[in-house]
Protein backbone atom coordinates (compact mmCIF):
# COMPACT_ATOMS: atom_id res chain seq x y z
CA UNK A 1 0.00 0.00 0.00
CA UNK A 2 1.16 3.46 -0.89
CA UNK A 3 1.72 5.94 1.90
CA UNK A 4 -1.31 8.21 2.50
CA UNK A 5 -0.68 11.98 2.92
CA UNK A 6 -2.96 14.96 2.28
CA UNK A 7 -1.60 17.40 -0.28
CA UNK A 8 -2.30 20.28 2.13
CA UNK A 9 0.18 18.75 4.62
CA UNK A 10 2.91 18.76 1.98
CA UNK A 11 2.11 22.43 1.29
CA UNK A 12 2.73 23.47 4.89
CA UNK A 13 6.00 21.51 4.94
CA UNK A 14 7.18 23.01 1.64
CA UNK A 15 6.47 26.53 2.91
CA UNK A 16 8.56 25.86 6.00
CA UNK A 17 11.56 24.83 3.88
CA UNK A 18 11.15 27.65 1.38
CA UNK A 19 10.58 30.27 4.06
CA UNK A 20 14.03 29.50 5.40
CA UNK A 21 15.70 29.91 2.00
CA UNK A 22 13.77 32.82 0.56
CA UNK A 23 13.10 35.84 2.76
CA UNK A 24 10.80 37.39 0.15
CA UNK A 25 8.14 34.74 0.80
CA UNK A 26 5.16 36.00 2.79
CA UNK A 27 2.03 34.02 3.63
CA UNK A 28 -1.53 35.23 4.17
CA UNK A 29 -4.45 33.20 5.47
CA UNK A 30 -8.07 33.93 6.31
CA UNK A 31 -8.54 32.31 9.71
CA UNK A 32 -8.02 28.79 8.37
CA UNK A 33 -4.29 28.42 8.92
CA UNK A 34 -4.57 25.21 10.92
CA UNK A 35 -6.63 23.57 8.17
CA UNK A 36 -4.61 24.90 5.24
CA UNK A 37 -1.45 24.10 7.26
CA UNK A 38 0.07 27.57 6.83
CA UNK A 39 0.10 27.68 10.66
CA UNK A 40 3.44 25.89 10.47
CA UNK A 41 4.94 28.81 8.56
CA UNK A 42 3.19 31.26 10.90
CA UNK A 43 4.83 29.70 13.93
CA UNK A 44 8.32 29.75 12.46
CA UNK A 45 8.16 33.09 10.62
CA UNK A 46 5.59 35.21 12.49
CA UNK A 47 6.80 38.47 10.91
CA UNK A 48 6.12 37.16 7.42
CA UNK A 49 2.71 35.66 8.16
CA UNK A 50 -0.45 37.74 8.05
CA UNK A 51 -3.70 36.36 9.37
CA UNK A 52 -6.28 38.51 7.61
CA UNK A 53 -9.29 37.17 9.48
CA UNK A 54 -12.47 36.04 7.76
CA UNK A 55 -12.13 38.51 4.88
CA UNK A 56 -10.91 36.89 1.67
CA UNK A 57 -11.40 39.82 -0.71
CA UNK A 58 -9.19 42.05 1.41
CA UNK A 59 -6.66 39.25 1.78
CA UNK A 60 -6.27 38.82 -1.99
CA UNK A 61 -5.57 42.48 -2.57
CA UNK A 62 -3.31 42.83 0.46
CA UNK A 63 -1.28 40.04 -1.12
CA UNK A 64 -1.32 42.01 -4.37
CA UNK A 65 0.08 45.05 -2.57
CA UNK A 66 2.84 42.98 -0.99
CA UNK A 67 3.67 41.54 -4.41
CA UNK A 68 4.11 45.02 -5.92
CA UNK A 69 6.95 45.46 -3.42
CA UNK A 70 8.81 42.34 -4.54
CA UNK A 71 7.29 39.85 -2.11
CA UNK A 72 6.27 36.37 -3.23
CA UNK A 73 2.83 36.25 -1.66
CA UNK A 74 1.24 32.88 -0.87
CA UNK A 75 -2.47 33.24 -0.11
CA UNK A 76 -4.42 30.39 1.41
CA UNK A 77 -7.97 29.56 2.33
CA UNK A 78 -10.47 26.91 1.33
CA UNK A 79 -10.93 26.70 -2.46
CA UNK A 80 -14.50 27.94 -2.39
CA UNK A 81 -13.59 31.18 -0.60
CA UNK A 82 -10.30 31.80 -2.41
CA UNK A 83 -11.75 31.35 -5.89
CA UNK A 84 -15.45 32.05 -5.37
CA UNK A 85 -15.70 34.81 -2.80
CA UNK A 86 -12.64 36.64 -4.08
CA UNK A 87 -12.81 35.86 -7.82
CA UNK A 88 -13.03 39.43 -8.98
CA UNK A 89 -10.13 40.51 -6.77
CA UNK A 90 -8.06 37.72 -8.32
CA UNK A 91 -9.16 38.77 -11.80
CA UNK A 92 -9.00 42.55 -11.65
CA UNK A 93 -6.17 43.24 -9.25
CA UNK A 94 -3.90 40.19 -9.23
CA UNK A 95 -4.06 38.83 -12.77
CA UNK A 96 -4.76 42.04 -14.70
CA UNK A 97 -1.78 43.60 -12.94
CA UNK A 98 0.31 40.43 -13.52
CA UNK A 99 1.34 40.14 -9.89
CA UNK A 100 3.40 37.42 -8.29
CA UNK A 101 0.67 36.02 -6.04
CA UNK A 102 0.30 32.29 -5.45
CA UNK A 103 -3.17 31.25 -4.41
CA UNK A 104 -2.84 27.85 -2.76
CA UNK A 105 -6.28 26.66 -1.74
CA UNK A 106 -7.16 23.52 0.15
CA UNK A 107 -10.45 21.64 0.62
CA UNK A 108 -11.28 21.33 -3.06
CA UNK A 109 -13.64 18.65 -4.33
CA UNK A 110 -16.20 16.44 -2.62
CA UNK A 111 -13.40 14.73 -0.68
CA UNK A 112 -13.87 17.55 1.87
CA UNK A 113 -16.50 15.14 3.19
CA UNK A 114 -18.83 15.81 6.16
CA UNK A 115 -18.78 19.65 5.89
CA UNK A 116 -21.08 19.28 2.90
CA UNK A 117 -21.74 21.16 -0.33
CA UNK A 118 -21.11 24.67 1.02
CA UNK A 119 -17.47 23.77 1.61
CA UNK A 120 -16.89 21.35 -1.28
CA UNK A 121 -15.55 23.49 -4.12
CA UNK A 122 -16.14 21.75 -7.43
CA UNK A 123 -15.97 24.84 -9.65
CA UNK A 124 -12.54 26.31 -8.87
CA UNK A 125 -10.59 24.91 -11.82
CA UNK A 126 -13.14 26.47 -14.13
CA UNK A 127 -13.21 29.78 -12.26
CA UNK A 128 -9.44 30.15 -12.31
CA UNK A 129 -8.83 28.77 -15.83
CA UNK A 130 -11.09 31.37 -17.35
CA UNK A 131 -8.95 34.32 -16.19
CA UNK A 132 -6.43 35.45 -18.83
CA UNK A 133 -2.77 34.80 -17.87
CA UNK A 134 -3.62 32.57 -14.90
CA UNK A 135 -1.72 29.32 -14.36
CA UNK A 136 -3.68 26.49 -12.72
CA UNK A 137 -2.18 23.39 -11.11
CA UNK A 138 -3.63 20.43 -9.23
CA UNK A 139 -0.95 18.08 -7.93
CA UNK A 140 -1.86 14.40 -7.59
CA UNK A 141 -0.07 13.66 -4.32
CA UNK A 142 2.08 15.05 -1.53
CA UNK A 143 5.38 14.56 -3.35
CA UNK A 144 4.13 16.42 -6.41
CA UNK A 145 2.61 19.15 -4.23
CA UNK A 146 5.99 19.97 -2.79
CA UNK A 147 7.44 20.25 -6.29
CA UNK A 148 4.56 22.46 -7.40
CA UNK A 149 5.15 24.85 -4.50
CA UNK A 150 8.86 25.03 -5.32
CA UNK A 151 7.99 25.64 -8.98
CA UNK A 152 5.58 28.38 -7.96
CA UNK A 153 8.37 30.26 -6.18
CA UNK A 154 10.53 30.10 -9.31
CA UNK A 155 7.72 31.27 -11.58
CA UNK A 156 7.00 34.99 -11.82
CA UNK A 157 3.27 35.59 -12.11
CA UNK A 158 -0.12 34.65 -10.71
CA UNK A 159 -0.85 31.00 -10.03
CA UNK A 160 -3.62 28.88 -8.54
CA UNK A 161 -2.73 25.60 -6.87
CA UNK A 162 -5.60 23.27 -5.93
CA UNK A 163 -5.14 21.02 -2.90
CA UNK A 164 -7.31 18.60 -0.93
CA UNK A 165 -8.29 17.89 2.63
CA UNK A 166 -8.24 14.09 2.65
CA UNK A 167 -5.13 11.93 2.60
CA UNK A 168 -4.32 10.51 -0.85
CA UNK A 169 -1.83 7.80 -1.90
CA UNK A 170 1.70 8.90 -2.76
CA UNK A 171 2.14 7.70 -6.33
CA UNK A 172 4.95 9.86 -7.71
CA UNK A 173 8.61 9.70 -6.76
CA UNK A 174 10.97 12.38 -5.55
CA UNK A 175 13.10 11.99 -8.66
CA UNK A 176 10.19 12.46 -11.11
CA UNK A 177 10.48 15.69 -13.06
CA UNK A 178 7.85 18.38 -12.52
CA UNK A 179 7.52 21.11 -15.10
CA UNK A 180 4.63 23.58 -15.22
CA UNK A 181 2.55 22.85 -18.33
CA UNK A 182 4.19 19.50 -19.04
CA UNK A 183 1.98 16.48 -18.39
CA UNK A 184 3.40 13.34 -16.84
CA UNK A 185 2.81 9.97 -18.47
CA UNK A 186 2.58 7.37 -15.67
CA UNK A 187 2.04 4.27 -17.78
CA UNK A 188 1.45 3.52 -21.43
CA UNK A 189 -1.04 1.27 -23.20
CA UNK A 190 -2.36 0.95 -26.73
CA UNK A 191 -6.15 0.88 -26.24
CA UNK A 192 -7.20 3.98 -24.32
CA UNK A 193 -5.71 6.92 -22.40
CA UNK A 194 -6.96 8.14 -19.04
CA UNK A 195 -6.12 11.80 -18.46
CA UNK A 196 -6.59 12.77 -14.81
CA UNK A 197 -5.70 15.34 -12.21
CA UNK A 198 -5.51 15.45 -8.42
CA UNK A 199 -6.99 12.60 -6.40
CA UNK A 200 -8.36 10.97 -9.56
CA UNK A 201 -4.85 10.14 -10.79
CA UNK A 202 -4.40 7.31 -8.30
CA UNK A 203 -7.90 6.01 -9.10
CA UNK A 204 -6.92 6.06 -12.78
CA UNK A 205 -3.85 3.94 -12.09
CA UNK A 206 -6.01 1.40 -10.24
CA UNK A 207 -8.47 1.50 -13.16
CA UNK A 208 -5.60 0.80 -15.58
CA UNK A 209 -4.65 -2.28 -13.53
CA UNK A 210 -8.26 -3.50 -13.57
CA UNK A 211 -8.50 -2.93 -17.34
CA UNK A 212 -5.22 -4.75 -17.90
CA UNK A 213 -6.67 -7.85 -16.19
CA UNK A 214 -9.34 -7.80 -18.88
CA UNK A 215 -6.79 -7.41 -21.66
CA UNK A 216 -7.28 -3.67 -22.15
CA UNK A 217 -4.09 -1.62 -21.97
CA UNK A 218 -4.40 2.00 -20.84
CA UNK A 219 -2.09 4.98 -20.87
CA UNK A 220 -2.43 7.13 -17.75
CA UNK A 221 -1.59 10.83 -17.98
CA UNK A 222 -1.20 13.00 -14.89
CA UNK A 223 -2.37 16.40 -16.18
CA UNK A 224 -1.18 18.36 -13.14
CA UNK A 225 -1.28 21.65 -15.03
CA UNK A 226 -4.84 22.56 -16.00
CA UNK A 227 -3.74 25.81 -17.57
CA UNK A 228 -1.86 25.96 -19.83
CA UNK A 229 -2.96 22.42 -20.67
CA UNK A 230 -0.29 20.32 -22.42
CA UNK A 231 -1.59 20.16 -26.02
CA UNK A 232 1.53 18.42 -27.29
CA UNK A 233 1.25 15.43 -24.96
CA UNK A 234 -2.52 15.23 -25.46
CA UNK A 235 -2.23 15.07 -29.24
CA UNK A 236 0.63 12.58 -29.07
CA UNK A 237 -1.35 10.28 -26.78
CA UNK A 238 -4.60 10.74 -28.74
CA UNK A 239 -2.82 9.67 -31.94
CA UNK A 240 -1.56 6.53 -30.20
CA UNK A 241 -4.84 5.34 -28.64
CA UNK A 242 -7.67 7.26 -30.36
CA UNK A 243 -9.87 7.15 -27.24
CA UNK A 244 -9.65 9.34 -24.14
CA UNK A 245 -11.19 9.28 -20.67
CA UNK A 246 -10.80 12.35 -18.49
CA UNK A 247 -11.13 12.11 -14.70
CA UNK A 248 -11.41 14.92 -12.18
CA UNK A 249 -13.06 15.81 -8.88
CA UNK A 250 -14.77 18.84 -10.38
CA UNK A 251 -17.86 19.76 -12.39
CA UNK A 252 -17.62 18.78 -16.03
CA UNK A 253 -18.20 22.37 -17.12
CA UNK A 254 -14.90 24.17 -17.50
CA UNK A 255 -12.66 21.67 -15.75
CA UNK A 256 -10.08 19.16 -16.98
CA UNK A 257 -12.55 17.38 -19.27
CA UNK A 258 -13.50 20.64 -20.94
CA UNK A 259 -9.85 21.65 -21.32
CA UNK A 260 -8.92 18.32 -22.90
CA UNK A 261 -11.96 18.32 -25.19
CA UNK A 262 -11.21 21.86 -26.27
CA UNK A 263 -7.57 21.06 -27.03
CA UNK A 264 -8.28 17.83 -28.90
CA UNK A 265 -11.28 19.06 -30.88
CA UNK A 266 -9.04 21.75 -32.33
CA UNK A 267 -5.98 19.55 -32.94
CA UNK A 268 -6.91 15.88 -33.18
CA UNK A 269 -10.55 14.98 -32.45
CA UNK A 270 -11.11 11.56 -30.85
CA UNK A 271 -14.00 10.14 -28.75
CA UNK A 272 -13.84 11.34 -25.15
CA UNK A 273 -15.69 10.12 -22.04
CA UNK A 274 -15.61 12.28 -18.92
CA UNK A 275 -15.51 11.31 -15.26
CA UNK A 276 -16.53 14.25 -13.09
CA UNK A 277 -19.49 15.82 -11.35
CA UNK A 278 -22.39 16.36 -13.72
CA UNK A 279 -24.42 19.45 -12.81
CA UNK A 280 -24.86 18.58 -9.12
CA UNK A 281 -23.76 19.99 -5.77
CA UNK A 282 -21.90 17.86 -3.26
CA UNK A 283 -23.30 16.77 0.12
CA UNK A 284 -22.21 15.54 3.54
CA UNK A 285 -20.66 12.11 3.83
CA UNK A 286 -17.30 10.40 4.04
CA UNK A 287 -15.13 10.87 0.93
CA UNK A 288 -15.30 7.21 -0.16
CA UNK A 289 -19.10 7.23 -0.01
CA UNK A 290 -19.22 10.51 -1.96
CA UNK A 291 -16.81 9.16 -4.58
CA UNK A 292 -19.23 6.26 -5.08
CA UNK A 293 -22.27 8.58 -5.24
CA UNK A 294 -20.63 10.92 -7.79
CA UNK A 295 -19.11 8.11 -9.88
CA UNK A 296 -15.48 9.00 -9.27
CA UNK A 297 -14.22 5.50 -8.42
CA UNK A 298 -11.78 3.33 -10.35
CA UNK A 299 -14.73 1.14 -11.36
CA UNK A 300 -16.40 4.16 -12.93
CA UNK A 301 -13.24 4.95 -14.88
CA UNK A 302 -13.11 1.33 -16.09
CA UNK A 303 -16.68 1.57 -17.41
CA UNK A 304 -15.92 4.89 -19.11
CA UNK A 305 -12.84 3.37 -20.75
CA UNK A 306 -14.90 0.52 -22.14
CA UNK A 307 -17.54 2.94 -23.43
CA UNK A 308 -15.02 5.12 -25.21
CA UNK A 309 -13.28 2.09 -26.77
CA UNK A 310 -16.68 0.97 -28.13
CA UNK A 311 -17.20 4.47 -29.57
CA UNK A 312 -13.89 4.49 -31.42
CA UNK A 313 -14.71 1.13 -33.02
CA UNK A 314 -17.81 2.65 -34.65
Amino acid sequence: MAEMIATRQAYGDALLELGERNKDIVVLDADLSKSTTTAKFAKKFPDRFFNMGVAEANMMNTAAGLATCGKIAFVSSFSIFATGRAWEQVRNTICYSGLNVKIVATHSGVSVGPDGASHQCIEDISLMRTIPTMTVIEPCDAVETKKAIYAAVNYDGPMYIRLGRAAVPVITKKEDLFNIGKAMILRTGKDVAIVACGALVSNSLVAADLLSKEGIEATVVNMHTLKPVDHETLVKVAKQVNAIVTAEQHVLDGGLGSAVACALSRNYPVPIEMIGIDNRFGQSGEPDILFREYHLLSEDIVLAAKRVIERKKK
Binding site: A57, M60, N61, T62, G65, A67, T68, C69, T93
Partner: peptide, 13 residues
Amino acid sequence: GQGLSVGLGIALA
Protein backbone atom coordinates in the same frame (compact mmCIF):
# COMPACT_ATOMS: atom_id res chain seq x y z
CA GLY B 1 -13.39 48.87 -3.33
CA GLN B 2 -10.05 47.17 -3.97
CA GLY B 3 -7.36 49.83 -3.60
CA LEU B 4 -7.30 50.24 0.17
CA SER B 5 -6.43 46.56 0.58
CA VAL B 6 -3.59 46.95 -1.93
CA GLY B 7 -2.37 49.99 -0.01
CA LEU B 8 -2.39 47.93 3.17
CA GLY B 9 -0.26 45.27 1.47
CA ILE B 10 2.26 47.93 0.42
CA ALA B 11 2.26 49.40 3.92
CA LEU B 12 2.92 45.96 5.42
CA ALA B 13 5.78 45.42 2.95
